[in-house]
Design a protein around this nucleic acid. Structure first.
Length: 115
DNA sequence: CTCTTGACGCCGG
DNA sequence: TCCGGCGCCAAGA
């Protein structure tokens, strides 16, 4: 073995994996904010913030239910509000009367909430 | 090394 | 409620 480990996934990929795994665990009709995800991942890996979660989603969020990740005010991902709204409707996600924001008081979810 | 950018968040007006 | 400003943290130019 020339190097330490050929299968070593870099720490960056480790962080991205953690974020994506959490997003996949969000049930239909429920959501998590970037900050909440950053908090959970941060508690495990000890680093990263809301912006890092957004960075991961932007780069590799296509394979996960990205519309279940919302901003702290309940709005969808920047630049994808329209698409997100349609998907929320399809999942019957609790929305505010205006329909542009998720009602976090009813839709907010957390991994611990499941257990 | 410095400056800018980004799927963010909180506060004040 | 809408808007602007500032803080935050990592990546890229």
């Amino acid at each position: 073995m020339p190097s330490y480990s050929a299968t070593m996934t870099c720490m960056d990929d480790e962080y991205a994996e953690a974020v994506l795994q959490i997003v996949e665990s969000i049930p239909p009709g429920r959501v998590m904010t970037y900050g909440a995800i950053a908090d959970v991942v941060g508690a495990s890996l000890g680093r990263g913030g809301p912006r890092q979660v957004g960075s991961v989603m932007s780069h590799d969020g296509g394979g996960v239910p990205w519309w279940r990740v919302v901003r702290a005010d309940g709005r969808g991902a920047r630049g994808h509000e329209i698409r997100a709204r349609e998907l929320w409707l399809a999942e019957v996600t609790p929305l505010h009367p205006d329909g542009d924001r998720v009602d976090l008081r009813r839709a907010a979810w957390s991994p611990e909430h499941a257990g």
